[in-house]
Write a protein that binds this DNA or RNA. Sequence first.
DNA 1: TGCACGATGAAC
DNA 2: TTCATCGTGCAC
Length: 186
Amino acid sequence: MKGLRKLPRAFYARDTVEVARDLLGKYLVHVVDGVKRIGRIVEVEAYLGAHDLAAHSSKGITERTRVMFGPAGYAYVYLIYGMYHCVNVITECEGHGTGVLLRALEPVQHLEGRTQGPGLLCRAMGIDRRLYGHDLESRDFYLAQGAVSEPFTIVQRPRIGVDYAGVWAARELRFYIADNPYVSRK
DNA sequence: TGCACGATGAAC
DNA sequence: TTCATCGTGCAC
């Protein structure tokens, strides 16, 4: 695919909800064995930092959450339920513990299998813990903007799988492209 | 050093 | 609704 422009660090170093909404329609690129795997982001969730009880960073700085408290534009990859990986992009300023979970992709290039859901997305893109803390301004793993982008409507809903987070579970911090067939859940 | 528990997905 | 499966965080 041509006409892709890598997103600069300044894109990530902004308010997390704004970054989350702006990530819809952007492209995720991972070069595996010289092959460019590309997917269009159609669903994301915002995690607002140490005070957000649904965010991993609410436990403070630990071995796992260390990268969440670092500078924007790096990848936070973790293993969930012992079998799937999930990927976040870190946002805002160092120390905020904020990030955006990528939940679903529309396949664009060299993707095999389903991409509807954070675990399946990582499997199809070949993302695992080796990419923990990876710089998203690198040449082999990054997000990009297309040459042209079609307008779309953004739907806002509560996040998935965070019922334990009290009042934070009800916050509408999940965003997806309306009527897109690759969204994991309506 | 041990153990409860997931930002999931698939089967029943 | 249940279950597979294992790293992390925290209790002891």
